[in-house]
């Protein structure tokens, strides 16, 4: 069974991320976890802040982050993602269980997707997500776009799951899926995921093959044809696009702001990726639309 982690941060900015994440979770019937990673507390004052929080409890104040989870609960309830029994009982903040470190969790019985878990963590976002993925072995991590360029790099480099960055998602926009394929090992997974995402959003697919030279090799053509076949089998409308030029630039241009980009992760050595970057990373940093990097 697939496992999805959706990282949210605030009611104001995280709705698109949660909307997209839950749509994918529904399509994959995945076990879903929604996490809010709160700000890191200075190590000097961590204990006294914890103690203050205990006092706040006695004045019936929720700890920071509970409001975000409560909002997520309401979103799930409004969109029928959790069972009516759970909705009637309201947000079960009293059953939020501390599971060690800065992590607390609460379980909700899912309807269209498998069970949904809401969790709170505190600390550096990359560290916390990496830890969560490492322990619970998620298949995809879904997160909103960030203005920090380093964030995209760290997500792709260090999180051991596929990464879906819901960048500048507009719910009123009609999207197409841009599936970038080549002869790399990552393409196979990207095509599979691409098909699932296209089904989830009920959208058409542009299968894009980019070559740096005029000629398209066997591997490239084969990958594009295989992807087309799978889309056909799944009943998804698709078209094959062949372009020549710099892959990241072409993908960025073709994607515009009305595509969801799906591509495989780079199979380069981590050291090379760290110093020189990679195609997926460049696409994630530069594109003005949601991007899924499949690992």
């Amino acid at each position: 069974m697939m496992k999805i982690l959706i990282a949210v941060g605030s009611k104001e900015f995280s709705e698109p991320t949660l909307r997209v994440g839950m749509k994918i979770a529904k399509a994959l019937n995945a076990l879903t976890t929604i996490v809010d990673v709160g700000e890191k507390t200075s190590k000097f004052n961590s204990k006294i802040v914890g103690l203050t929080q205990e006092r706040m409890d006695s004045w019936e104040f929720d700890r920071p982050g509970i409001d975000v989870l409560e909002w997520a609960f309401q979103f799930l309830a409004d969109h029928n993602y959790i069972s009516p029994k759970m909705v009637d009982a309201g947000f079960p903040k009293n059953t939020l269980v501390h599971t060690g470190g800065s992590r607390s969790e609460v379980f909700l019985k899912g309807t269209v997707c498998e069970d949904v878990q809401l969790i709170l963590r505190n600390g550096n976002i990359i560290e916390e997500l990496r830890d969560e993925v490492k322990i619970r072995k998620y298949d995809i991590t879904i997160i909103g776009g960030s203005r920090k360029r380093r964030m995209a790099h760290d997500l792709v480099q260090y999180i051991d799951s596929s990464i879906f960055v819901v960048n500048q998602f507009n719910p009123n926009q009609t999207y197409r899926l841009l599936l970038a394929v080549d002869d790399s090992t990552g393409t196979k997974g990207a095509v599979k995921f691409g098909a699932r995402v296209a089904q989830a959003f009920n959208i058409d697919v542009d299968i894009l093959t980019v070559s740096k030279v005029d000629k398209f090799g066997k591997g490239y053509k084969g990958a594009a044809e295989k992807a087309g076949k799978l889309m056909g089998k799944c009943g998804i409308n698709y078209q094959n696009l062949y372009r020549v030029g710099d892959p990241s630039e072409i993908i960025k241009k073709e994607a515009g702001d009305n595509h969801i980009v799906v591509m495989g992760a780079s199979s380069k050595n981590p050291l090379i990726k760290f110093f020189k970057g990679s195609k997926p990373l460049k696409v994630m940093e530069d594109c003005h639309c949601p991007v899924l990097i499949v690992k």
Binding site: E127, R130, D154, Q157, Y158, D160, N269, P270, L271, F274
Partner: peptide, 19 residues
């Protein structure tokens, strides 16, 4: 590289960035 797996290299790089 030198017998290190991709995952251990990634862990090492992560450690480097954190430290």
């Amino acid at each position: 590289m030198l017998g290190f797996s991709q995952s251990s290299l990634t862990n090492f790089l992560f450690w480097l960035t954190q430290k």
